[in-house]
Lab assay of single mutants.
Amino acid sequence: MLDDRARMEAAKKEKVEQILAEFQLQEEDLKKVMRRMQKEMDRGLRLETHEEASVKMLPTYVRSTPEGSEVGDFLSLDLGGTNFRVMLVKVGEGEEGQWSVKTKHQMYSIPEDAMTGTAEMLFDYISECISDFLDKHQMKHKKLPLGFTFSFPVRHEDIDKGILLNWTKGFKASGAEGNNVVGLLRDAIKRRGDFEMDVVAMVNDTVATMISCYYEDHQCEVGMIVGTGCNACYMEEMQNVELVEGDEGRMCVNTEWGAFGDSGELDEFLLEYDRLVDESSANPGQQLYEKLIGGKYMGELVRLVLLRLVDENLLFHGEASEQLRTRGAFETRFVSQVESDTGDRKQIYNILSTLGLRPSTTDCDIVRRACESVSTRAAHMCSAGLAGVINRMRESRSEDVMRITVGVDGSVYKLHPSFKERFHASVRRLTPSCEITFIESEEGSGRGAALVSAVACKKACMLGQ
Rank of each mutant, 00 (worst) to 15 (best):
L271G: 08
I225E: 00
A454H: 12
V203W: 00
M235G: 04
E248L: 07
V374S: 06
W99V: 14
R303L: 05
G249A: 13
E237I: 09
H141P: 04
V101A: 13
L324C: 10
D160A: 03
Q38N: 09
C382H: 05
T342Y: 10
L430R: 04
A11Y: 07
V86G: 03
L451A: 00
A176M: 08
F269K: 11
I293Q: 03
T82L: 03
M37N: 05
L352G: 09
A378T: 07
G448V: 00
D274V: 05
G318R: 13
G81C: 05
L2Y: 11
G410V: 01
M8F: 08
R43I: 08
V455C: 15
G229S: 01
P417H: 11
M402P: 12
F269Y: 06
Q26M: 12
L292D: 08
A114G: 05
I225T: 03
Y349N: 07
G175W: 00
I390W: 03
L352E: 05
E52H: 14
Q98R: 13
V182G: 00
N254K: 06
L271I: 10
G44W: 09
E9K: 14
Q347H: 12
F269I: 07
E67M: 11
D158T: 04
A119V: 04
G227I: 02
V91Y: 07
A379D: 06
Y349C: 08
H424K: 08
H137G: 12
T206N: 00
R308I: 05
R186N: 01
V305W: 06
I163M: 04
G285D: 11
L20V: 14
D363V: 01
E70R: 07
R186I: 01
C220S: 10
Q347S: 14
G175I: 02
G249T: 05
A119T: 00
L309R: 02
A378R: 05
T60M: 03
S411T: 12
G72I: 05
S375H: 00
R403F: 10
G385C: 04
S281E: 11
T82N: 06
V253Y: 00
D344S: 11
G162N: 01
E196N: 00
S375L: 01
D3K: 08
L324S: 11
S411E: 01
I351L: 11
E279A: 14
D247R: 05
Q465E: 06
E435P: 11
H380N: 10
G328F: 11
R358I: 10
I390V: 09
Q38S: 11
K104T: 12
R327G: 14
G464M: 09
F133I: 01
G444F: 01
N254L: 04
V305S: 15
R5V: 09
C461P: 15
W257E: 01
H380I: 09
Q24I: 06
E112Y: 14
M41A: 07
L386S: 10
G356A: 07
I390G: 04
M381W: 00
K414G: 10
S109K: 09
V455K: 14
A201V: 09
F334E: 15
T168D: 02
D365W: 12
L324F: 10
I293D: 02
V427I: 12
